[in-house]
Amino acid sequence: MIPAAFEYYRPKDMAGVLSILEEHGDDARVMAGGHSLIPMMKLRMADVPHLIDLQDVEGMSGIEIGVEAIRIGAMVTQHDIIDHEPLASAAPILREAALQIADPQVRYMGTVGGNVANGDPGNDMPGLMQCLDAAFTVVGPDGERDIPARDFYEAAYMTAREDEEVLTAVTIPMPKGGYAYEKQKRKIGDYATAAAAVQIVNDGGTCASASIAMTNLSDTPIYSEAAGAALVGTSVDDAAMNAAVAAMLGDIDPTEDNRGPIAFKKHVAGVILRRAIERAWSRA
């Protein structure tokens, strides 16, 4: 498998990246770990005449845990997330999700920035970041801006990031309460048939807040505000979980593919969400 030829750049700073993007416009693209982009280039489904490797760009590999928020550099890998003890205690859902992505080799290379910027509905981190109400920092010729994860995804491979912008970091408000990332896949290393991210707060036996997002059940990740709302004020009993599942099913729009027909995907989505809520609540 031989991808089309390209010019390769490995700039040392963001100014260098932005000037190549500006010069070559649509013909240029950044690469982080390459574990989504290279397979597409090998299949010649992506044609990138000017490839900008971000590996040497400074300042995008840090994990900072503040009092109110966590900031993760775009080049932090899935392996880094799993390996980082302070991060795992501040936001354990990140490690739980990262462990369910791909396989060890892929996790050494795949980055947070690449996973959320890619725009593939199968990626696990976009839904996770919507659940956590994260914001994505992007920088471009007009400077820096923050885009909420919940507003970022427009359609498959279409996001609110402009072509000449680079995603530099993800900022997550300090998560509260219990958590779960539950994923149904056909085998280890597979993308989700359905996955659910749940973060839930228990106030003396009553659910005070709940955030729910689903993966690979529409052409974008789905933050289901209604599903979360169905749990708030309840004791997260069977009736509340049924209501949350019903609300979620109203928000997703799966299509038939090699992971199964629509009815099956909806069924799995319900099972997975219920498991995720139960586990998150037991930890809340």
């Binding site: 390769y8 390459g34 574990h35 060890p104 050494y108 290379m109």
Partner: peptide, 9 residues
């Protein structure tokens, strides 16, 4: 790092 060398230029 363990890397699949078919997925690196």
């Amino acid at each position: 790092k363990s890397v699949k060398s078919c997925t690196m230029f």
